[in-house]
Amino acid sequence: DDWEIHFNNITIRLHGVSEEQIEELKELIKNGAHEEELRKWAEEVNR
């Protein structure tokens, strides 16, 4: 699925990401992940 997530003036566009991966991302954000951590997560997902 395609997703677009907005938070802290950042837009993250995701393509072909599962519901499970979105839940992981929500947890990262909820736990106060920094932009660098989110980038690493996105790189892993996009492999």
Rank of each mutant, 00 (worst) to 15 (best):
A42F: 13
R13M: 07
I12E: 04
R47T: 14
F7E: 01
N8C: 12
E36K: 06
G16Q: 12
D2A: 10
I12P: 03
L28V: 02
V45F: 10
I22W: 08
E20A: 14
L25K: 00
W41L: 10
E24A: 09
E20M: 09
V17F: 12
L28N: 00
D1Y: 15
R39I: 15
E20V: 11
E43K: 01
L28F: 02
H15C: 10
N31I: 05
N31H: 08
V17T: 03
E43A: 02
W41C: 07
I29Q: 01
G32H: 06
E44C: 06
V17H: 03
E20L: 11
I29D: 00
E36D: 15
S18M: 05
L14A: 04
E19Y: 12
K30R: 14
E24M: 08
Q21K: 13
N31F: 04
K40A: 11
L38F: 03
A33E: 03
E20S: 14
I29K: 00
Q21Y: 10
I5D: 02
I10W: 00
N9E: 10
V17A: 14
A33D: 01
E20W: 10
E43H: 01
H34E: 13
L25N: 00
G16P: 04
I5P: 02
N8S: 09
H6E: 08
E37M: 09
E19C: 14
N8P: 08
E4F: 09
I5R: 04
I12H: 04
D2W: 15
N31Q: 14
W41H: 06
A33V: 12
A42G: 08
L28E: 00
V45Y: 11
H34D: 14
L38A: 00
N8Y: 01
K40Q: 12
F7D: 01
E27H: 10
S18G: 07
I12T: 04
E19H: 12
W3T: 05
S18L: 06
F7L: 12
E4H: 15
N9D: 11
E19N: 10
E37L: 09
I5S: 06
W3G: 03
H15M: 06
N46K: 11
E4L: 11
E4T: 12
R39A: 11
E23R: 14
K40L: 08
K26H: 08
S18W: 04
E19K: 13
F7K: 01
I5Q: 04
E44N: 14
E27G: 10
R47H: 08
K26F: 15
E27I: 09
E24C: 04
L25Y: 06
E4N: 06
E19A: 13
N46M: 15
K30E: 08
G16L: 10
E24D: 06
D2M: 15
E27T: 14
E24P: 01
A42Q: 07
G32P: 01
N8F: 02
K30D: 04
L38N: 00
D2K: 12
H15G: 07
L14F: 02
N31D: 06
N46I: 15
R39H: 14
E23V: 09
N31L: 07
V45D: 02
H34L: 15
H15K: 10
D1K: 15
E37H: 06
N8Q: 12
I5L: 10
W41E: 02
E43S: 02
E44S: 09
E27L: 12
G16F: 12
N31V: 05
R13G: 08
K40T: 02
E24N: 06
H34G: 15
G16E: 09
K40V: 02
N46P: 04
K40C: 05
R47M: 15
T11I: 13
A33M: 14
L25W: 03
H15E: 08
K26R: 13
N46L: 14
R47W: 07
H15Q: 08
E27S: 14
N9M: 11
L28S: 01
Q21M: 08
F7I: 11
S18D: 05
V17I: 12
I29T: 01
F7N: 01
K26A: 09
I5V: 07
A33H: 04
